[in-house]
Amino acid sequence: MIYLDYAATTPMSDEALRIYNETAKTFFGNTSSLHDIGSSAARLLEICRKELAKLIHSDENGIYFTSGGTESNILAIRSLIQAHRHKGNHLITTTTEHASLYHLFQQLEAEGYDVTYLPVDSSGIISLKDLEEAITPQTILASIHHANSEIGTIQPIREIGQILRQYKVLFHSDCVQTFGKIHVDVEDMMIDSLSISSHKIYGPKGLGAVYIRPSIKWKPCLPGTTHESGFRPGTVNVPGIASFITAAQQICTNLPNEHARLAQLRQYFIRFIHKNQLPITIEGHPENVLPNIIGLSVHGVDGQYTMLECNRHGIAISTGSACQVGKQAPSRTMIAIGKNKEEAKQFVRISLGKWTTTNDIETVISVLKNICNQFS
């Protein structure tokens, strides 16, 4: 099977697996226990916190470990707005956020918050003018993803951060798809809060992290929580976190070379599509885009058919974000960039990873070419 769905999840790296096994045997104590076994686990946890802080250029005191990207998004947003509710009830996000955030903001609307959903252009980028005009004296927080999980478009995050800091609006960014793929620097990007996930970077599933700038107040979602400084309840998964940080160190160390390699594979695919004039549209921004994601529409062909045909030929791709697969409604991202419902249903996503080769790209191109010929 040729796996081209790395944006959905990644297999664990050998080193991450090795570290998990070793840590599970040696550092199995509860970090809240006062005996030596608990204390040794607590020390390892703090080392992991420091190492992750280095990778995103942040203060280690702002790092909190979670069960993954979805929980990170939910806890970060709720912890921040609960602490700043006295300032107002207005929130800002985009029409193309990950499902975990989109559904959270819908829930917050039902709870009485006023939410502005910023539109995007045909390439998936928000307007900085729209953002500035959306800010009111009642605005508490804006949540704008670093890059879209379906088409890979990267937002002008530093410029967004500058505007929000100028108006003293808290800035959360979902960096689940970008961490380890492109440079993430919370100071340079002027981010107050971000979320990342382990299983997108060859670490174990069920692990993630939140960063909140230590100078910013937040309020625990569940009063009385003791773990992770009250940020999240539940015994801390130290072996999983050690494995997560090992994977993070590996992917960030190799980031420049891997970015270049994946970008070349992506361009190889796109050049072939254009050269052979296949009825396929590459979605997203032509330049400000993640190197590992290729969002595309096969004209006149339902995305689910394309995905199933690829699967029949031993190729794993997706019809969009894994959190949306199975839904009858077309991709929100496709609708947001101007597609009608029928066009939106033609979307599929190919996402590349560390084991993707040129031969893999050529194989998927061959299958796509046959699909196009069937419907020509």
Rank of each mutant, 00 (worst) to 15 (best):
S32A: 15
N148R: 11
G300I: 06
I144Q: 03
Y113C: 04
G234M: 04
S33N: 13
Q162R: 15
E187I: 13
N237G: 03
F347G: 03
H199M: 03
N148H: 06
C323N: 11
I81A: 05
G295E: 00
S198C: 05
C175E: 08
V176E: 11
H285D: 13
A263I: 00
L255T: 03
R213S: 11
T136L: 10
L80I: 06
I191N: 07
A336L: 00
H98Y: 13
Q155S: 11
S376G: 09
T226I: 13
L368C: 12
N73M: 03
N89D: 09
A110E: 14
L52A: 12
I92S: 08
V301Q: 08
S297R: 08
I365C: 14
E22V: 07
G284T: 00
E51T: 12
V238S: 04
G62A: 10
F27M: 03
V238R: 01
R271S: 14
G314M: 07
V169H: 09
S32V: 13
A134Q: 10
A247P: 01
A16I: 02
G161Y: 03
G29Q: 04
T356I: 01
A142W: 00
S195L: 00
V348N: 15
S79T: 08
T281H: 14
F231C: 06
I216D: 06
I282V: 08
N340F: 07
A329W: 12
E342V: 12
I216F: 07
L164D: 02
I92M: 06
A242T: 06
C221D: 07
M12R: 05
E228Q: 13
F272Y: 15
I63Y: 00
S58C: 08
Q82D: 11
T26E: 14
I77Y: 07
I81P: 03
N61R: 14
N61F: 03
Y117F: 15
H313R: 15
C372Q: 12
